[in-house]
Every structure is written in C-alpha cells, then in structure tokens.
Amino acid sequence: MWTDLLAAYAMWMTMAYLTDAWKLNLKHAAAIVNLFWGIVAIMPVGLQFVVDTFMGYYWMVLLSSFSYIAGLGFLSMLTPPDLAAATATCSAYDPECIGQGQKILFFTALALIAVGFSGHLVSVPQFMADQDSHSNHRDSMLCHLFISFTVIHVPIAGAFAIYYIKPWSMRYGIPAICTLVATLIFLTGSCSYRTYRPYGSPLTVLFRVFVASASKIFQKHPRDSSHLYERRDDYYLIPHTRRLRCLDKAAIILATQPLQQQENNSWRLCRVTEVEETKSVLCMIPICMTLILIGVVSSIGTSFCIEQATHMNHEVGA
C-alpha cells in the first residue's frame, strides 16, 4: 500500500515531466495525463471481472505488482540522458532528443502502470480483508495501526522528498525499486495466505440476460408474469417489475422444450430475479453519466494544478 502511494506521487508528476522534459504544450500534456487517469478509473471494472471469473485476488495482486515494476522501470529508463547511447540521440531534455523508441516505451509504460494501479485497487483491499477475517483481534489491531502509520507518514515524506529529487530517472526509479522490494516481501508470505477460488462475476449474469433475451426476441410476453421462470425455493427473490420489458424475454419458458433441458442452459433461460438485477444496473446508467462532470473537475487537479504549482514562485511573500 505504501509503494502505491509513492507510485501515485510519481505519476502525479507526469504532467510536469511532459511539459518540462518533453516540452509539450499544456493541452497535449493534459490530454495524455487525463487519458491515463481515465483508463485507471475504467479498467477496474474489467479487472474485477477477470478476478471473479479466472484469477482470484492473490494472483491479481502479483500480476498488478509486476506490471507496476515494469511500467515504472520503463519510465525511469526512457529519459533522454539514460537512453541517449541506445537510441543514438542527444542527452538533453529537448524535443529533438525524444526518439520514436522513447515514445513507444513511454506509452507502453503508461499502459503497464494503469494495469498495476487498477489491479491493486481491485485486489489489495479485498485480499487484506480475507486475511484479516481469519486473524485474532490483537493481530488485526497491530495491522491496522501499521497501515495507518504508513498511510499518514509516507505521503508526507514523499511530498517533501519528491521536490528535492531532480533527475526524472530517480523520481520514477525509486518507486520502481520500492515496489520490487514490497513484492518480494509479499512473496515471502505466500505459503501462509488464505486464498479462495473465483466464485464467478456478477457481470456474467448481465451477459446471460442479454443473450437469453436476444435469442427469444420473437417470443411474445406472457400475460401473467407468474408464468415467467423463477425458482421459488430460493431465499433471495426480487419481484417482477414492468420496466424494460424487453429483458423479460430472457425468463420466458419455451413450450417446445422440456423445462429441465432449458434450466440446464443458463444462457437461454434466466430467472426473474436475474432479469430484475440487470434492469437495476441499466437504470443506474443515467446516474453514473452525471458523474462525468465530476471527472472533468477532478482532472484539473492532475493537470493544470500540477503545472501551476510547478511554475509558481515558491517564496512566501515574494
């Protein structure tokens, strides 16, 4: 967790790196930075599906950690002074010294760091909760105290230290080394961690409802909703609603096939509860769309505010 904070500080300085080292204009640099943080915000949805369906939280922690190490390592190596000999370019921080290979390496590094950042957001909190639920009260208290100490003090130390670290290779290299050390420490406890097999993703239910309703697009809705398929013995039931009735076709029982045969194919027949869950998710989309304005405002903090703070006069009263 504390290495994630260091890596986040390093990535917040990317705006200054693009404008100072690469000499990009404000709009071009802000577009790159906002695209990166936008991918970081969206990618957890897909990674959560991968975790719940295939990998589990332990392997996602490892995968995202190695992706973090590779991405930060690439960023630390692609500065003009470090790659001048390999790319046959000059070593100054000028646009002429930024070769095509450095640009490819830079965007590759951003993609790897986005996977690492999003993967840790998805896996680390839940993985810690799985370990904490099986530990005693004293160990839990010590763990929370240690986490609180690092979460409070590491950002403060990083905020002061990052200003005095001038070489860009060091600003990205130190988080890469810290992430490598933290990953190796994490691996030492692999034999004692409690892991669980993936139990399936809720997104699979949405996909099944879409596929089942599309396969019965020419079927007529029954007049009585009680004729739709539902397992009455289940303890979790959602009553039928009349909104988005096109999705109700996923729960239509075909008269041409035995019911047991249809129940065995969950991609052709879904429960009313599953259909109603899908309807609820779709009804939340307009609410989520309103958060776009919040994203526009928050993007100023990682672009314009960083640039403003970098070039302002730091002397009080000057």
Rank of each mutant, 00 (worst) to 15 (best):
R197C: 15
L203Y: 12
W267G: 04
V115K: 07
A318P: 13
V211N: 14
Q308V: 11
F117M: 09
T256V: 13
R243N: 08
M15D: 01
Y93E: 09
V297N: 07
G116E: 03
C191M: 03
C143L: 12
G301N: 04
S133E: 09
C143G: 11
L62E: 07
L78C: 05
T302E: 06
R232I: 09
F210I: 10
R194S: 12
D82Q: 08
F74Q: 05
P286R: 08
Y68P: 09
I69P: 12
T273A: 05
Q126C: 05
K23H: 06
Q131T: 06
I39T: 04
N25T: 00
W267A: 08
A8E: 09
Q131C: 12
Q219Y: 11
I238D: 13
Y57C: 02
N34P: 01
R271W: 11
W59Q: 05
E230A: 12
Q219M: 10
V154H: 06
D224L: 09
T3N: 07
G101I: 03
C288D: 07
T204I: 13
E276L: 01
W59V: 04
H28F: 02
K279A: 03
V281R: 09
K279V: 01
V45M: 00
L142A: 10
F106R: 01
I165E: 08
T273L: 00
V297P: 06
F127S: 02
T290M: 10
L145W: 14
W22Y: 04
R231P: 04
Y229I: 02
T179L: 14
M312S: 05
V281C: 03
A214W: 12
S225F: 12
